[in-house]
């Protein structure tokens, strides 16, 4: 045992610079300014409201802008997810599960329109902010 322990190599350190998410994103031609919203006058806070009835549910809302993941928030009971800076053309992706019914509402005009009702099962949806 002692011999094998002496030969054991130290584990390689994890590469802290790698980003596992980047493989899925299209980032051509993007600059920091093209994604910035702080000074964008047309950006707005948006609430995504989840209402689970006749059973529990959980969901995750992801905000995409020009192929880049801007914000991601999860909820495990009825309530709101707030995205503080949303622009026209952004896309909100929703995924989750509900054991009863789920109602998803976004407080800004979207395509397709909300609220949308889901029956028991997987919640798979996406909305374009108009």
């Amino acid at each position: 045992m002692a011999k094998s322990a002496k030969k054991a190599k130290p584990k390689p350190k994890p590469d802290t610079t790698s980003n596992t998410k980047t493989e899925t994103m299209t980032t051509q031609g993007l600059t920091a300014n093209s994604l910035a919203t702080a000074e964008a006058p047309h950006s707005q806070p948006v609430d995504v409201t989840f209402n689970f009835t006749s059973g529990v549910g959980q969901a995750t809302a992801v905000l995409f802008r020009k192929g880049v993941l801007i914000n991601m928030q999860s909820i495990s009971k009825s309530g709101n997810v707030n995205f503080s800076e949303v622009q026209s053309g952004d896309v909100i992706s929703i995924s989750g599960v509900c054991a009863g019914k789920a109602n998803v509402a976004i407080n800004t005009p979207t395509t397709p329109v909300t609220p949308e009702q889901f029956n028991a099962g997987l919640i798979i949806a996406g909305y374009l902010v108009n």
Binding site: V62, G67, L69, A125, G126
Partner: peptide
């Protein structure tokens, strides 16, 4: 797999010049 595909499609649609038609079709 279905959740990941939905996220990827949404990310892709957000890069399209005219995303409304694509998202309605995907809906």
């Amino acid at each position: 797999q279905l959740f990941a595909l939905n996220d990827l499609i949404m990310a892709k649609i957000s890069t399209m010049p005219n995303p409304a038609g694509a998202i309605m079709e995907y809906t």
